[in-house]
């Protein structure tokens, strides 16, 4: 592998990884805080639904007037893209913990905080992980578009391949992004199955 390719791959991973971290750090607590409050929850889910239908390229382009070109606007656009699946899945995850289980926890004398940290969040975690996994695949694929606004990454090969009619270069970019997304998805899939398995052993 050439140094050039590794640099592009690295930039791609850093951009996608940073976007996911920021989106998870914002989205998970936000959805957690809103889940039992009907009004904020409604607003949040409506926003998540709204963001979901905006095309990635449009989001990327719309950030340029505010942040210019480069890494920052690309990061912001990808965070916006990663937020909906994380918000929605965290919400679903927390609401899918049976009410009876939470009542049992309260009935045994757990404080609300203990109900959250010892019962509700641990039980919700596998579904929260599904959201992060979905977001990961979307962000790795969409980070390709960052090249259009100077965000770097593997998308550079696609952009320059398109401009110069260099088909092998274009293919290199497209294929490596696809492989990266598949690998990340598989890795997170394993983690997620481990999480789910630790909650519900099927054998023994």
């Amino acid at each position: 592998m050439s140094a050039d390719f590794i640099a592009h791959l690295g930039a791609h991973v850093v951009l996608a990884g940073a976007a996911l971290l920021v989106a998870a750090a914002i989205g998970i607590p936000l959805a957690g805080g809103a889940v039992d409050r009907p009004l904020p929850r409604g607003v949040l889910l409506a926003l998540a639904g709204g963001f979901r239908v905006v095309p990635s390229l449009a989001v990327l382009t719309l950030t340029i007037p505010f942040l210019g070109l480069g890494f920052a606007p690309a990061l912001l656009a990808l965070v916006v893209l990663a937020l909906p699946p994380i918000l929605v899945n965290t919400d679903v995850a927390l609401r899918s913990v049976p009410n009876a289980t939470l009542e049992a926890a309260r009935g045994m004398g757990m404080t609300e905080r203990q109900v959250g940290t010892r019962v509700r969040w641990p039980l919700a975690l596998p579904v929260v992980a599904v959201g992060v996994r979905t977001a990961t695949v979307e962000v790795i694929a969409s980070a390709t578009l960052a090249a259009f606004i100077g965000g770097g990454g593997l998308g550079d090969y696609i952009v320059s391949g398109l401009q110069t009619g260099n088909f092998p270069e274009l293919l290199l970019g497209a294929a490596s992004v696809a492989v990266l997304a598949i690998l990340a998805d598989a890795a997170l899939g394993v983690t997620q199955r481990r999480l789910a398995l630790s909650l519900s052993p099927t054998s023994g």
Binding site: A100, E103, A104, G109, S198
Partner: peptide
């Protein structure tokens, strides 16, 4: 309330066990 509940046993249907 939490103090009170720690001194009172509470049993509901089987779903009340913590699966994790």
């Amino acid at each position: 309330a939490t103090d009170l509940r720690r001194g009172i046993g509470y049993v509901i249907q089987a779903v009340g066990l913590f699966p994790h």
